[in-house]
């Protein structure tokens, strides 16, 4: 266990060398975010009243929370790096050493998030402060605690799914197309683009049979108090289930992949 903490430590140092990159990334991502907020404001101005149970203030705080959750949990370049490791034969050493590649990558993933958070903290806080009066605190202590638990589960879910996807590199040369296709679905179905409540109820209901809402919509809704009571506990339970399933799938893909692996250049 200790060796993986070591990985986190080294990972943070490595990641912090890209702080300018992270900073520009964060700053550039404010442009579409701000545009989205303006778009909704215009819609609310022409509309008057709530949309699917969201007041304008709630809609804006939804998007701000999405930005926060995204910084904390999104897989950044991990899937690309894993695929490159496989393609270039760097994983050979992990087959020989007593280090598990999945835990090793998870350590790097967390260190990446910590480093990104450290860099994004200031600009994100400034941005949110500009919309200060729309940003709400969690409705109560339970929501706050459940949000934090759900946040960790979201991060794990994101990571295991990306890890499993990157395993495709054992079979195909270019995995980026597959990653982008999955990302497109994640982007719209996870609630990144809009809160899932604005969808027709049937569609929203159907989406909850997929892992996607648990990658973004679920933690944000807990925070905002849209999901509470029995639904909250049930949801957390299902989210944990998806995490375990994604973990098992990631392991399965790795085991199949290693059997297929030819150690090119290794």
């Amino acid at each position: 266990m200790k060796k993986y903490w070591h990985v986190v430590g080294i990972g943070i140092q490595n990641n912090l060398t890209y702080r300018v990159n992270y900073l520009t990334r964060t700053l550039f991502s404010f442009i579409p975010l701000f545009a989205m907020l303006s778009l909704w404001r215009t819609i609310y101005a022409g509309q008057g009243g709530a949309i699917s149970g969201y007041t304008m203030a709630q809609m804006i705080s939804y998007y701000l929370l999405v930005a926060v959750v995204d910084v904390l949990t999104a897989v950044n370049e991990d899937d690309w790096q894993i695929a490159a490791d496989i393609r270039e034969g760097n994983i050979s050493q992990f087959l020989l050493k007593p280090v598990d590649y999945l835990w090793f990558r998870l350590g790097l993933f967390f260190s990446g998030r910590i480093a990104f958070m450290a860099v994004a903290l200031v600009p994100l806080t400034v941005f949110i402060a500009c919309f200060g009066h729309y940003f709400v605190l969690p409705v109560n202590g339970t929501a706050c605690l459940a949000f934090l638990v759900s946040l960790v589960l979201t991060a794990l879910l994101q990571f295991f799914i990306s890890y499993a996807m990157a395993m495709l590199a054992f079979w195909v040369l270019e995995v980026s197309t597959f990653i982008f296709i999955l990302f497109a679905f994640e982007y719209i179905a996870s609630g990144h683009m809009f809160p899932l409540d604005v969808l027709p109820p049937m569609l929203k209901h159907a989406l909850f049979f997929t892992p996607f809402p648990y990658q973004m919509y679920f933690p944000v809704s807990i925070y905002m108090g849209k999901i509470a009571g029995a639904d909250l506990w049930q949801g957390l339970f299902i989210q944990a289930g998806w995490v375990l399933l994604a973990y098992a799938f990631a392991r399965f893909m790795w085991n199949r992949g290693v059997r297929h692996y030819g150690a090119f250049g290794g």
Partner: peptide, 21 residues
């Protein structure tokens, strides 16, 4: 896929409003 997604987004928006500006 990404293009279709943008069109879906427009479709969803106009479920709730008749015009943007």
């Amino acid at each position: 896929l990404w293009f279709a997604m943008q069109l879906c987004f427009i479709g969803v928006l106009y479920l709730h409003t008749n015009s943007i500006g």
